[in-house]
Amino acid sequence: MEFDVQWLLTGVPVAFGLGWLASRLDLRQVKHEQQNSPKAYYKGLNLLLNEQQDKAIDAFIEAVQHDPDTTDLHFALGNLFRRRGEFERAVRVHQHLLDRADLSSTDHDRAQYALAQDFLKAGLFDRAEQAYRALEGTPFEVEARLALLGLYERSRDWLAAQETAVALERMGTGSFATRISHYWCELAAEADAKGHTAEAEAALQRACAAAPHLARPWLVMGQRWVARQQPEAALAAWQELRTRASTHFPLIALDYAEQAVRLGQAQAALEVIRSAYDAAPALDLLRAQARLTGQPFAELPELMQHLQRYPTLSAAQAVLSGLLAHPPVPADVGAGVARALEVAARPVQRYRCACCGFEAQRYFWQCPGCLSWDSFPPTRLDEQ
C-alpha cells in the first residue's frame, strides 16, 4: 500500500490544533474554578470578621463545593459549626477528613484533635476521651493530655487525673505538684467515705509529699485525727500547717483552740494564736483567742482594738452585738438591731474566687464556678 504524504501533512496540523484547543478549554475551566474558590473563601472570611456566622458558613460551603479536596476550608467550616453549637455537623466534617485516604499525617492529627474538641463541646465525654487518647505520640499530645486533665477533673475521676498530671510533668509541660496533691486529698476523702482508713492515710501522705507547702493535706490530716479522738496528733498536724502555709491557719484556728482546751494546753495555744494574729490579723484568730481565755467574743478587749485598726462590718457587728445584749437596750430592740446587722454583714462575710468572682459562705479548694484550684483567698471579703 502506497503511503500518502499529503494526509500526513494535513493531519499533523489538525491534531495539533485540536490538542491546543482542548488545553485552552481545560485551562479556562481550572482558571474559572480557581477564581470562584478564592472569592467564596474571602467572602466567608469577610462575613466571619463581621460576626455574620450564618452567611459565612454558606460561603465556606460554596468554597468547599468548588474545591472539595482542600483541607483548610473543611477545618474552617468544622470550627464554625462547633462555635455555633452545631456539633453533629462539625463531627461529620472532621470525620469526613479522617476518612480520606489522601490526607497527610499532619492534617490527620489535626482532624483528630478537632474531632475530640467537637465531642467535648457536645458533652460526649466518653467519645472525647477516646478521641484525645488517639493523639498520644502526635504533635497534639500535650494539648490532648491537658484537655483530658480538665475532663477527668470535671468527672471527678481523681486517679486518672493524677496519672495524667504526672505524665504531663514528665513531658516537661510544667509543675503540677499542687494539683497532684489536691487529687490525693480527694482520693483520701473518697477512701474515708468508703471506710478505707488505710487507703485514706496513704493518700494523705502522698498529698503531703507531692506539695509539702500546700495547706490542704495538713488541714485535712488534723481533722481526721480529731474524728479519731486524737487531739495531740491533730494539733501537731495543724502546727505543721501554720509553719508551711500560715495564711490558711485562720481556717482552723477555732478548731485548734478547741483541741488545745481539751488537752489542757490553752496557755501554749494562746501564744500560738497571738503570734499568728500579729503576723496576719483576722477575726477568726480572735474568736480562737476568746475560746482559749474563756471570754465572750464580743467582750474581748482585742476586738475593739481590731475594729479601730480594721473598721470592717464584721468587726462592727461583733462589737455591737455585745453592746446590744446589755441594758439599757430593750431586749426586743437589741435582737432586731442584731438581726439587721447580721443581714447587712452577710454579703461581705463570704469567700470569693479570684478567677471568676464566685462567692460562697464556705471555703472551697476548687472553685465550683470555674474549677480553678486555690483561687479562694483564705480570708473573707471584708477582711481582704
Rank of each mutant, 00 (worst) to 15 (best):
Y152F: 13
P231K: 00
D284R: 07
T173N: 06
V14Q: 01
P281C: 03
V220I: 06
A90D: 10
P327G: 06
K31E: 13
F81L: 04
Q52E: 08
E2D: 14
E190I: 05
D284S: 08
W184G: 00
A335V: 07
L21H: 08
A134W: 15
A266C: 09
C353H: 07
S246V: 12
R346W: 13
P281H: 09
V348T: 15
D157W: 15
P378C: 08
L307D: 06
D4T: 12
A165K: 11
Y277C: 03
L149H: 04
K31V: 02
L303E: 08
A114F: 12
H66W: 05
S155I: 15
A210E: 10
D69V: 14
Q230Y: 06
T70P: 00
Q6L: 05
L115N: 03
L149W: 14
R24H: 10
A260N: 02
T178W: 11
R228D: 01
L235Y: 02
K31F: 01
A227L: 04
A15C: 09
A207W: 07
P296N: 10
H66P: 02
A147T: 11
A331I: 08
A266L: 10
V343L: 07
Q317N: 11
P38Q: 08
R224D: 05
L49P: 00
A233N: 01
L18V: 14
F3S: 12
S104V: 01
E186I: 04
E169H: 03
A191S: 07
P296W: 06
A147M: 13
D192W: 12
V329R: 09
T312V: 02
Q305D: 05
D26H: 09
M1W: 10
Q239M: 12
R216E: 13
A188G: 04
G78H: 13
V5R: 04
D58T: 12
R262I: 15
F358E: 02
E51A: 04
E136S: 04
Y152V: 00
D255W: 10
A209Y: 12
S23Q: 12
E33Q: 14
F81K: 03
L25K: 13
T243A: 12
D374C: 11
A315S: 07
A276G: 06
A257M: 06
Y183I: 02
L135I: 08
L77I: 14
L219S: 08
P377R: 06
F364V: 08
S275P: 04
A22L: 11
W184R: 03
R24S: 07
Q52L: 11
